[in-house]
Simulated scan of single mutants.
Amino acid sequence: MTDNKASIPWYRVAFTKRWLSYFLLTALFAGACVALSTWQFARRDEAKQEINRVLANYNAEPIALTEALPDPTQFDENDKWIPIVVTGTYLPEEQLVARSRPREQVAGVEVLTPLKTGDGMIFIVDRGWLPANENPVDPYILPQPPTGGVTVVARLKASEPSIPGRGMSDGQVATIELPLIQEVLNAPTYTGAYGLLESEDPVPVDQAPLPALKPTLDEGAHLSYALQWIMFGVLAFIGLGWAVRNELRIRNSETAEGKAKLEAQAQKRASKPSEEDIEDAILDGR
């Protein structure tokens, strides 16, 4: 009875409940790939914006702190890396360290020194990075900043967000969270931004911490990852189509029409001379 069946049309296979379920799973997977691709494109846009900020602001002429931050509690992210100049007096007894700041796979901290300006406000200066030493009791010996009046040139960065469950202990903070530092200092403080030290005058007697590294102008591999996720989504549908076609071919091979096609293909292959026949014909001709 099977031999009298005609070929099965493709939609009789593709629109079955089983293959529709597979199609739904494929669509969900492709949707996830699109979402991940969109996320990578957004990450690339953020990286490009950061590169533009560095190119526009990093080597600009320093401006007064009060001009850059007219409102001590606010900060425009587009002003990141702008150099500012401010004069005041360091408060070395109030120094803090931002912990868990590895650099080139070496454990370390960033030294945060409050600078009291002429109007009584506190501006937090990140004076640089210190590696951990071998003293388990006091792993970070903080160098003393210049005493008396000092003129500081620093680049602005926004206050860092808090980390839930991690606060402050023994003069150490988990992040450079300026509102928290203001509470610790109990003094009016710039909470919108702090400064990465570029230079200070006079030069300190103690060796200063290592200066901050210049940000890289590399947008990363986000574009490549985004295109890869798109490709994965497309390949999922191609694989689904191949699977449907393969099942259709197997099922049609059992019908009379399918068997006739297979026999015709076999006869066609048999009618063609083999490589051995061609070689024998060439030798005979010689």
Rank of each mutant, 00 (worst) to 15 (best):
L69S: 04
P70D: 02
P70Q: 08
D71A: 10
D71K: 07
P72H: 04
P72G: 01
P72F: 00
P72I: 00
T73E: 13
T73H: 09
T73W: 05
Q74M: 10
Q74W: 10
F75M: 04
F75N: 06
F75R: 06
F75W: 13
D76F: 02
D76R: 00
D76V: 03
N78I: 04
N78A: 11
N78Q: 14
N78S: 14
D79H: 11
D79M: 09
K80R: 15
K80A: 12
K80P: 06
W81S: 09
I82F: 08
I82M: 15
I82G: 05
P83M: 06
P83Q: 08
I84R: 00
I84P: 00
I84V: 12
V85C: 08
V86T: 12
V86K: 01
V86N: 06
V86S: 08
T87Y: 04
T87F: 06
G88M: 03
T89F: 07
Y90W: 07
Y90T: 05
L91A: 14
P92Y: 01
E93A: 12
E94T: 13
Q95M: 11
Q95G: 13
L96C: 12
L96I: 07
V97H: 12
V97T: 14
A98G: 14
S100P: 01
S100M: 13
S100C: 06
R101E: 03
P102T: 10
P102F: 12
E104R: 09
Q105A: 13
Q105M: 10
Q105R: 10
V106W: 07
V106Q: 15
A107M: 02
A107W: 06
A107I: 03
G108D: 02
E110H: 14
E110M: 09
E110V: 10
V111K: 07
V111S: 10
L112S: 15
L112M: 15
L112I: 15
L112C: 13
T113V: 07
P114M: 00
P114T: 05
P114W: 02
P114L: 04
L115E: 00
L115N: 01
L115T: 01
L115Q: 01
T117Q: 06
T117S: 04
T117K: 02
